[in-house]
Amino acid sequence: MSRSLFIISDRNLLLAVAKFFTLMIYILTFEQAPAIPEVFFTAYDALIDKANFQAGDTVLIHAGASGVGVAAIQLARVMGASLIAITSRTNWKLEKCRSLGATHTINTAEAEFDRVKEILFTRIPKN
């Protein structure tokens, strides 16, 4: 059997992991507990391993109210994203995303996708 070691170098992420384990021990069932790290590992993989996210980057998260979307919002915020744009199809989900740290939200049921491009690309300096 192999063992894995996961080293956390960011203070905020370390605090989040400590809070999770406290929550897991006292509140969550064994069936509920694995869902939390699964969505955070997936979001981390997408942001860091695949997209090479750096502090100050702009992040666009589709389906921000999904499990992975919620995790991605929180990771992007903690890791210093300059802009976190979220898409969803309902206003109450967008409000929840704002409460988690999203800086811009777009209801894709009401707005054209050009609104996403407008928000993202107006922050990029033009040549």
Rank of each mutant, 00 (worst) to 15 (best):
S9D: 06
I27F: 11
A63N: 11
V116W: 00
L120H: 03
G69H: 07
A33C: 09
I8G: 00
L75V: 00
N127R: 07
T58R: 14
T90Y: 06
Q32P: 01
G101I: 11
T58D: 06
F6I: 14
I7S: 02
A46V: 01
A55P: 08
L75S: 07
T105N: 00
I73W: 03
A109M: 07
F30V: 00
G67H: 07
D10V: 04
I124T: 10
Q74R: 02
F41N: 15
V39I: 14
D57I: 01
I124Q: 02
L75P: 11
N12F: 02
S4G: 04
K126C: 11
L75N: 09
Q32H: 10
K19I: 03
I8T: 12
A85W: 01
A71E: 09
K117Q: 12
S4R: 05
E112V: 02
L75C: 06
A111R: 08
D114V: 07
D57W: 00
R115M: 11
A46F: 02
L23K: 06
A63F: 00
H62R: 12
L14S: 12
D57N: 14
A35K: 13
I8E: 02
E38F: 02
I84K: 06
V17C: 01
M79K: 08
T87W: 08
M1K: 08
L83Q: 01
A33Y: 04
V116K: 01
S4W: 13
S99G: 01
V70C: 02
A102S: 05
A109H: 08
D114S: 15
Y26V: 03
L13I: 12
L60C: 10
D57S: 12
N107Y: 03
D10Q: 09
F30C: 08
A109K: 13
I27H: 14
